[in-house]
Simulated assay, not measured.
Amino acid sequence: MTERIENSLSNPWAFDNADEQMFSPNKQNRIEYGELIELAMGSPLAGECYWYDSNNRRHKISSLCGGPPIWNPEGTMVAIPVWRRTLFKGTIQQLSVLDVLKSEWTLYKRTLRVLDLRSFRNEIISGYDSPIYATTSLHFDLNREEVEKRRKI
């Protein structure tokens, strides 16, 4: 049964603004992407990413986010993959978390390949890094990861 549920979820190659994962569990907040593009032929989708708060105000999160996002069960935090182009490492992914109660966005320092997020409970994000090639399980504890930057939105 778990496998069927996981396979029904969106993934980095196929997600849409209408997907259930874009909305917080209480439907008070949502994540929305601008035009989605492939970073390269056959690569995951990416685009500008926005948070629509409970008053339906739009806040830009980042210019190049991947997806889909994953919300904690309370609907107070959402994890969103962010793509970055670097001089020495090429295109990398990092994990960001938006706290909707504090209106605060945090980008974590750890670099990853392609994130496929599956759960967000007790400040621990689980999923897969590089779900198609040389897959590794992801266990991302927000209390133990190094922060690269934090800003108010």
Rank of each mutant, 00 (worst) to 15 (best):
T2G: 15
T2M: 13
T2P: 12
T2S: 15
E3M: 07
R4W: 05
R4H: 12
E6L: 15
E6A: 08
N7T: 07
N7P: 04
L9T: 04
L9Y: 14
N11D: 13
N11G: 07
P12C: 10
P12I: 06
W13D: 09
A14V: 02
F15V: 01
D16M: 06
D19F: 11
M22I: 04
M22K: 03
M22W: 03
N26R: 10
K27A: 14
N29S: 12
I31P: 00
Y33M: 04
G34F: 05
E35M: 09
L36I: 04
E38T: 08
E38L: 09
A40V: 04
M41Y: 11
M41Q: 11
S43L: 13
P44H: 09
L45R: 10
A46R: 03
A46E: 01
E48L: 06
E48Q: 11
E48P: 02
E48R: 06
D53C: 06
S54G: 02
S54C: 13
N55M: 09
N55R: 11
K60W: 12
I61N: 01
C65Q: 01
C65R: 03
P68Y: 05
P68D: 14
W71Q: 02
W71L: 04
W71G: 04
N72S: 07
N72Q: 03
E74A: 13
I80K: 01
I80V: 14
I80G: 07
V82N: 00
W83G: 01
R84T: 04
R85P: 00
R85G: 04
T86W: 11
L87F: 13
L87E: 14
K89A: 15
G90F: 02
Q93N: 09
L95A: 02
S96G: 10
S96Q: 03
V97H: 01
V97C: 03
V97Y: 01
D99P: 10
V100S: 15
L101V: 11
K102N: 10
S103A: 14
E104K: 12
W105M: 09
T106S: 06
L107Q: 01
Y108L: 03
Y108T: 01
T111S: 13
T111A: 10
R113Y: 13
V114L: 06
L115M: 06
D116S: 09
D116E: 14
D116K: 08
D116H: 09
L117Q: 02
R118E: 14
F120I: 03
F120H: 06
R121T: 15
R121Y: 08
R121H: 12
E123N: 13
E123P: 04
E123L: 10
E123V: 07
I125A: 05
S126D: 14
G127W: 00
G127P: 00
Y128W: 12
D129Y: 00
D129S: 11
I132W: 15
Y133I: 12
T135K: 09
T135V: 07
T135M: 11
T136W: 05
S137G: 05
H139K: 12
H139N: 11
F140V: 02
D141G: 02
D141S: 10
L142T: 01
R144Y: 08
E145C: 05
E145F: 06
E146G: 01
K149E: 15
R150W: 09
K152R: 13
K152H: 13
